[in-house]
Write a protein that binds this DNA or RNA. Structure first.
Length: 578
RNA sequence: GCCGGCGUAGCUCAAUGGCAGAGCAACGGAUUUGUAAUCCGUAGGUUGGAGGUUCGAGUCCUCUCGCCGGCUCCA
């Protein structure tokens, strides 16, 4: 974010806090920073704020802005500041002060409102002209669920009215793209929380056809890139997860045991142990490495009810998984290869921008030696750097068995979505005693790379829906062409056109209902079908079809053969760069 | 899981504590139409679920399930 905008928003958060203190004097202050889309301030209040309160606070803010109070910076000795905020009963400010090491701290003041703050601020409240309070939400003090929950008010501020309006418009736009709404309207999928359980996806025919196109492309790309496809079962005896360490380190996400012939089984939360079992069925030579097993593996994980979200966060999902057994000295090279492969596939689906994150060892809940972790983290880092990609460090964000690289894609609205993940693992090979025979004829331990490109098919589909607003490119669209007849007189011709398109392998539908042309067009357009083909008397006479392209309206009349040639050309899958 | 908001027909939404309604969709009929909604009719509901208050509950209270916005977490 631009520095000045950050200052403006931070100032807005102070004005909001002062308004809250005026209206609710007992509210204790938490923190109130500027964030990417605006700002927030946390308050400890007896009663949570209501939307009506928000309006009152906003009005009070406007009043303060009108009065144009100057912001003043006051320097205070830390101990003095502690005393100052203790007397005001601002316990959270005191807590922050206890952790500040500087001898002197700055405090910003306007209209009798004092806040511990590094600053800087705009010179007076009157500079914050275009703002809006957006939402109230609970938020744990310091983001820790063990702490008290405070009430957070979100808002945003801009320098101009136009920018504010554009921001609000973009929010509306995002709502229209919501994959949950589009998923229902376009009959892609449904969720049946009451009857079947929350977080479980039912793929309807329209969604399923898109999924199968995605999966077909994925399979073909993997076979061409040195992977072997496998299938493994969805349940396994508990002892498999004892060996893998999931039971110890991942049980909070695993569903409870079921007994089969008195033997405890679990439904799988990950696919890795199964892949390792296949690897271990024979002795492998270093010549076979890197050995790459890929599976569209469906897993089930317990996710807390409050985090479930459409297709993006679910309880049962299919990972486009692969496990690569690789010699230590080839790890970096293999990671680069995987990164290139991932990005090439994501690009095929129309994503251009990516952001990489290197996630390091978690504070608690990790297995293996710290030294190995550091080595692995360096190997991943080297791979990213050698591939020439920008990245950020996600401190403590690794899986329990190793560090990872996450790839997020940027969608049409500039939002980031987590897709690919490349995870480094030196623990499972140890636990399962995985080895290969090296050049010297000795047993050697390989490293294991877990990786997914889409992440989960469900999530990726959700991201695709939002990216394309449900209007998929021709090759991905569930229905690619809809043929409309204008009257029953030309139904035979329309049927003929439909049959010939269908025979060529294009996904086509015929709308022969006896309703107005306008109505048929409207429906075809609302279903976001790429081509609507209209057959009337004029077309029949010439062997033509009239074409409507989704979102572009009437594109005129061309011969059927020409149209067929065109859509067959357009139907080819995008080519991969790897 | 936590905080707040919300659950009425397939969808979008009405209904002061007093007869559960509309539009779209569905179904039936008329209409044979040239680039985004033809007209008429029919049917559709234990108001998420269970208790309670009341002469009377969609509306008020309690519990519960679920959804939405956040927090925490995450493929």
């Amino acid at each position: 974010m631009e520095k000045n905008l950050e200052i403006l928003r931070h100032s807005a958060s102070h004005i909001m806090a002062s308004a809250v203190k005026e209206l609710y004097p007992d509210a204790k202050l938490g923190i109130g920073p500027a964030i990417e889309d605006g700002f927030y301030y946390d308050f400890d209040v007896e009663k949570p704020f209501t939307p009506e309160d928000l309006k009152r606070i906003e009005d009070k803010m406007k009043e303060f802005i009108e009065k144009d109070y100057p912001f003043e910076k006051i320097m205070m000795k830390r101990e003095e500041a502690k005393k100052f905020f203790s007397e005001k009963n601002e316990i959270y400010k005191v807590e922050i002060l206890n952790e500040i090491e500087d001898e002197e701290v700055s405090i910003y003041k306007h209209n009798g409102f004092y806040d511990l703050c590094r600053g800087p601020h705009v010179s007076s409240t009157g500079e914050v002209k275009f703002f809006k309070l957006l939402d109230v939400a609970g938020a744990y003090w310091r983001g820790d669920e063990k702490n008290k929950m405070l009430q957070r008010i979100y808002g945003t501020a801009f320098f101009t009215k136009e920018e504010l309006e554009e921001f609000l418009k973009k929010r509306e736009e995002a709502k229209k793209r919501d994959h949950r709404k589009l998923g229902r309207e376009l009959e892609f999928f449904s969720i049946h929380p009451e009857e079947a359980g929350p977080g479980l996806i039912y793929w309807h025919p329209k969604g399923s056809i898109v999924r199968s196109i995605i999966e077909d492309l994925w399979k073909k790309a993997h076979l061409e890139n040195g992977y072997q496809l496998i299938y493994t079962p969805h349940i396994a005896q508990e002892k498999l997860y004892e060996i893998s360490g999931h039971l110890k380190n991942y049980s909070e996400f695993m569903y409870s045991r079921m007994l089969i012939d008195d033997v405890p089984y679990r439904i799988r939360p990950m696919n890795c142990p199964g892949h390792i079992l296949i690897y271990k069925t024979k002795i492998h030579s270093y010549r076979e490495l890197p050995l790459r097993y890929a599976e569209l593996g469906t897993v089930y994980r317990y996710e807390k009810s409050g985090v479930l979200h459409g297709l993006l966060r679910v309880r049962g999902f299919t990972i486009d998984d692969a496990h690569i057994f690789v010699q230590k000295e080839n790890v970096s090279e293999e990671v680069i290869r995987v990164l290139d492969f991932s990005i090439s596939i994501l690009k095929a689906f129309g994503f251009e921008d990516f952001k990489l994150y290197l996630a390091t060892r978690p504070e608690e809940k990790f297995i293996g030696e710290i030294e190995d972790w550091e080595k692995a983290e360096n190997a991943l880092k080297e791979a990213i750097e050698r591939a020439g990609l920008d990245y950020e460090i996600d401190e403590g964000g690794g899986a329990f068995y190793g560090p990872k690289i996450d790839v997020k894609v940027k969608d049409a609205l500039g939002r980031l979505w987590q897709c690919s993940t490349i995870q480094f693992d030196f623990n499972l090979p140890e636990r399962f005693d995985v080895f290969f025979i090296n050049k010297e004829g000795k047993e050697e331990r390989p490293y294991l790379i877990h990786r997914a490109i889409f992440g989960s098919i469900e999530r990726f589909f959700g991201v695709l829906i939002e990216h394309y607003k449900g209007a998929f490119p021709f090759w991905l669209a569930p229905v690619q062409v809809r043929v409309l007849n204008i009257t029953d007189d030309v139904l035979d011709y329309a049927k003929n056109v439909y049959e010939r398109i269908k025979k060529s392998g294009i996904r086509v539908e015929l709308d022969s209902r006896n309703i107005t042309l306008n109505k048929k067009i409207r429906e075809s357009e609302m279903e976001k079908i790429p081509y609507t083909v209209i057959c009337g008397k004029k077309e029949k006479e010439k062997g033509n079809v009239s074409i409507r392209e989704y979102g572009r309206g009437d594109r005129g009349s061309i011969s059927f053969d020409e149209f067929l040639k065109r859509i067959l050309q357009e139907n080819k899958n995008p080519t991969l760069t790897v």
